[in-house]
């Protein structure tokens, strides 16, 4: 039975198309299309893994685990040797440096935005920090290579050298012939070049700062007012209350740090423009190096024989897995925060 249409009622935009089979068809098609989009996205990620594993299959078979214990990267046919160790080291050191400097800076900035700045200042500061994230990596690279590197070479690194020259680092493994040797190494060694691990770490610091700041800010905003008021009521100072907030939000902040770390691991252009591009392992901050993404950017197109290309894919696979692990941890920590927020 259909209801009689009353001309005095307002027009109902939906009632004209009461053809039920058609409507149900459109309904199903819409849902199927949306689901199709999701399935396509899942397929893309599967394709990423299939392509990387397929491409690196030859190197996986021929080099296997030696890839992780060989420092040499020597693609000359006949005498070729492929090891990811120096690139892993380069990625590791630059990421570590970036986190070492970037995490305190970012958390400090996030605390300023959420807990110190008056509201009229917090918005603009937040906006400006997010602008840092919008600047393309090639722009940071150009600035790093023509402005920051010369400045490091001429001003900062000589000062650092005098300050740090007596510091010996924990023994660092060196693998000249596949054998592992250990020896104490200087934290700073050789002349300041401006194109080194320190430069790579600093440029990455700038690039991860807005990410960690933005997420830490969002997480800190979740700190319940009741706890804050309670703490102040007991006579806590601002810092004692802020420490409560940091402790309360620690999982989310750790997630933010992991997300910044994932960004640092995958970053390519800015780093290769300042890191010096050599496959050395050195404990010195002033030594040039190379990262996994960097060697891909520099040599992928030059890989002209099968095992070389396959080794490049192997590097890509290692890079993908490092980034994957970091991202999974970050998302697990951050989604726990989201769930808690939904429950609250």
């Amino acid at each position: 039975m259909t209801a009689p249409t009353d001309p005095t009622l307002p027009h109902n935009p939906f009632i004209d198309v009461q053809q039920n089979a058609f409507r149900r068809g459109v309904d199903k098609a819409t849902k199927a299309a949306a689901l199709g989009g999701v399935l396509l996205t899942i397929t893309i990620l599967i394709i990423v893994f299939v392509v990387l594993i397929h491409g690196s299959w030859m190197a996986l078979r021929q080099i296997g685990w030696h890839f992780f214990t060989t420092q040499a990267w020597n693609p000359v046919p006949g005498r070729d040797q492929y090891g990811v160790l120096s690139f892993l080291y380069g990625t590791g050191v630059t990421t570590f440096l970036a986190l070492l400097i970037g995490v305190p800076l970012s958390i400090g900035t996030a605390i300023f935005i959420t807990r110190i700045a008056p509201r009229w200042l917090a918005g603009p500061v937040s906006f400006l920090v997010e602008l840092l994230a919008a600047i393309p990596s090639i722009a940071y690279g150009l600035w790093g290579c023509f402005v920051m590197s010369p400045w490091l070479q001429n001003y900062l690194e000589p000062i650092l050298y005098d300050a740090l020259k007596h510091i010996k680092l924990i023994p660092v493994g060196k693998y000249p012939s596949g054998r592992i040797e250990f020896f104490p190494a200087n934290l700073v060694h050789g002349g300041p070049s401006g194109s080194d691990f320190l430069a790579g770490g600093l440029i990455l610091t700038i690039m991860i700062l807005p990410i960690i700041t933005a997420i830490t800010r969002d997480v800190l905003l979740q700190f319940p007012q009741e706890i804050e008021h309670g703490a102040y009521g007991l006579g806590a100072t601002w810092w004692q209350t802020t420490r409560l907030a940091l402790a309360y939000c620690r999982a989310g902040i750790f997630g933010a740090v992991m997300l910044g770390m994932a960004r640092a691991i995958g970053e390519t252009m800015a780093v290769i423009m300042v890191i010096g591009n050599t496959d050395h392992i050195s404990a010195s901050l002033f030594a040039g190096g190379q990262t996994m993404s960097g060697v891909l950017a520099n040599e992928f197109m030059e890989a002209d024989h099968p095992i070389y290309l396959s080794a490049m894919f192997y590097v890509a696979l290692v890079l993908m897995l490092s980034s994957l692990v970091t991202n999974v941890i970050a998302r697990a920590l951050l989604s726990r925060i989201d769930r808690e927020r939904q429950l609250a």
Binding site: V48, V51, G266, M320, L324, N327
Partner: peptide, 25 residues
């Protein structure tokens, strides 16, 4: 849950690797 994870992971994939994939494809 899977779809959310996949999208997060795709967003976090180093962009140079997506270049490698497009090169291969």
């Amino acid at each position: 849950y899977l779809a959310q994870l996949v999208m997060d992971l795709l967003a976090g994939t180093p962009t140079i690797l997506l270049g490698v994939i497009a090169w291969q494809l």
